[in-house]
Design a binder for these strands. Structure first.
Lengths: 352, 352
DNA sequence: CTGAAAGCGCTTACAG
DNA sequence: CTGAAAGCGCTTACAG
């Protein structure tokens, strides 16, 4: 026996294979009576469609598009790098994934890209989202044509995407607060927080989580007025210098532009410790961590997120229940748990 | 056109489909000349076998066995739980995964289980390993019959497994040291380290990494003589009480038996802070973290490790190059970044 | 509204 | 040592 096939269903229902197929795949043009009989047989036998066989006969290829912010942002560069590393493997699973660059934080740019995808053979989209309601019509049109959509790193309007893949930024901010508080070892302190812009949902969330925990559990730590940097390194630099002058015991940058922070830290007169926590592991932040300029990096694991987006889009396209996925927890790097510099060395160690 | 099929290869090589198949799958009984021609065609066309089609025609089912330690260990319970959550999904991909319990730390028990698997239709094994060389003959026999083997959580003899899936325990120990050191905020301290047994590779590695970083970067922190607990809660309890009497500023348990530690901490007179770092997030350690008895939990993410084992075994069975896999980095939990209690709530939030 | 038949890319007897 | 043919579980014209 084994698992029942559609032939089994057809026989049990007393109809032809073609008819069984029509109802199972809701292709229409079937008598109500036949529909009933087939559905009963499906239920009785516990039939489940063999997606692999279907794909083979259709020569199906899944086309996924990743909508990522353009520009030099090193974090998204890691995403693109992982995606191109994966290309060969995906090809074996009949998946083609393509990256399209969108002007950063541009709702209209994103909207246009979504509109352009309408009417194409794109099966799924993973987009670094924005909360703008202007996106909703384009997203709805895509959904209506059967294109699956997930938010990546930053969410899309909740009702117009199938899932969100990214960390909980409030939680990330709380975590930063906890570790920063612990690092004060019971001593009082004052922390300077930097953000690109509190208009960005993730930045605002991190700051909210951070403030909440500091206020509740570390009352001896004062939070200095937040400085907005537009994620520009020069502004981050100046803000860090200011923090030093204010005798801050800690700096937490919830946003980007860390090269400016690192520069400021290395210029700083070598007096007392200043605890530094930032986000996203990239080349320059990694070096600063190794050098002891930065204490902690909270990282999103872009490679993990990409893999998850792929798995999810695939499952959504196949219309099957989503697989159990371990929760995404931001990774905390200190200078002692940094991953190998490249995948090659990883595989040498890992797979013998 | 699209990707070339074996028909294309056969035509290009000027042989029949069957012959092309014979050489591509090295089934033997082919003239040297034919082999050459086919291989040339394969190279010229860039042919790659369609595994899905092959599996369909063979009605292939992958059978994987997970060899996990028996007993009440909550960490391995999480592994089993994830595996059973995955069962339905795996079934759709023609994978049956089964758990077999082995007496903990018993090389002979593991060896016997491996021997019993010889001659069965098991395609792959993920085993929580031991370093014993006694395992080598059984592993070699399995390998010779084509069974793929990976070490999980704790490695097998390196030359007798295809890969190791688990964290780097030296790195985990270093990370614990860094965070514990930071939490002293520049103050001096004395730390009590507990281990089940330094004979266990992972425990020894963690302790080594920990000691290295403390000695190098936190000279003001003294490491008290290590206490071995056999991972027994009562012994852990007594050791923690002793640490309190010695005015330890911190406790790091590299092993298990944390319920004893937690009991000791909650009995302790409410004087000064004692920083506590332990391994593995399970029900009781989670509650202790939330209650503030424990400061940090370093976790291995058994669910992530299981998924990786599955992916890896599958790729190994198919004989294709291993997919790029993001490095496993131990997850650090504070009380602020704990995952939802169960997958249900996770999916509600995550996938709308 | 229904059914018979060829084909997706492979494997497996079976005949030569 | 080689090849023709049926079958894996599905989809897609095509005929009725």
């Amino acid at each position: 026996m084994g698992t029942p096939t559609l032939s089994d269903v057809a026989r049990a229902a007393g109809v032809s294979y073609a008819t069984a197929d029509r109802v199972v795949n809701s292709r229409g043009n079937v008598a109500a009576k036949s529909i009933e009989k087939v559905n009963a047989a499906v239920a009785a036998l516990g039939y489940v469609r063999n997606v692999a066989a279907a794909n083979l006969s259709k020569r199906r290829i899944y086309r996924f598009v990743f909508l990522l912010p353009a520009g030099p942002n090193a974090f998204f560069a890691r995403m693109r790098a992982h995606l191109s590393l994966m290309a060969d493997h995906l090809a074996q699973d009949n998946i083609r994934a393509e990256v399209q660059e969108i002007a950063a934080f541009s709702a209209s740019g994103l909207e246009q890209a979504l509109r352009d995808l309408h009417g194409t053979d794109c099966d799924g989209i993973a987009a670094v989202g924005l909360h703008s309601r202007d996106l909703e019509p384009a997203l709805a049109a895509l959904r209506d044509q059967g294109t699956q959509i997930v938010g990546l790193v930053s969410d899309l309007p909740r009702d117009h995407r199938a899932a969100y893949i990214g960390i909980d930024n409030v939680m990330a901010g709380r975590t930063a607060a906890r570790l920063l508080g612990m690092a004060h070892g019971g001593n009082p302190g004052r922390v300077q927080v930097l953000a690109g812009s509190l208009d960005a949902g993730d930045h605002a969330d991190r700051f909210a989580g951070f403030s909440e925990v500091i206020a509740r559990d570390f009352p001896a730590i004062e939070i200095l007025p937040l400085i907005e940097t537009r994620d520009q390194a020069s502004k981050v630099h100046d803000a860090a210098m200011l923090a030093t002058r204010l005798a801050a015991t800690a700096i937490y940058n919830v946003g980007a532009g860390n090269s400016g922070l690192i520069r400021a830290l290395s210029e700083r007169p070598g007096d007392g410790r200043c605890i530094c926590i930032i986000h996203e592991l990239v080349d320059h932040s990694r070096r600063a961590l190794e050098a002891g300029l930065i204490d902690l990096i909270i990282d999103q694991r872009p490679d993990v997120e990409i893999n998850r987006a792929l798995t999810l889009l695939r499952a959504l396209c196949d219309g099957r229940p989503l697989p159990p996925m371990p929760e995404l927890v931001p990774t905390i790097y200190v200078r002692d748990n940094l991953p190998g510099q490249d995948m090659t060395s990883f595989f040498e160690g890992q797979a013998q």
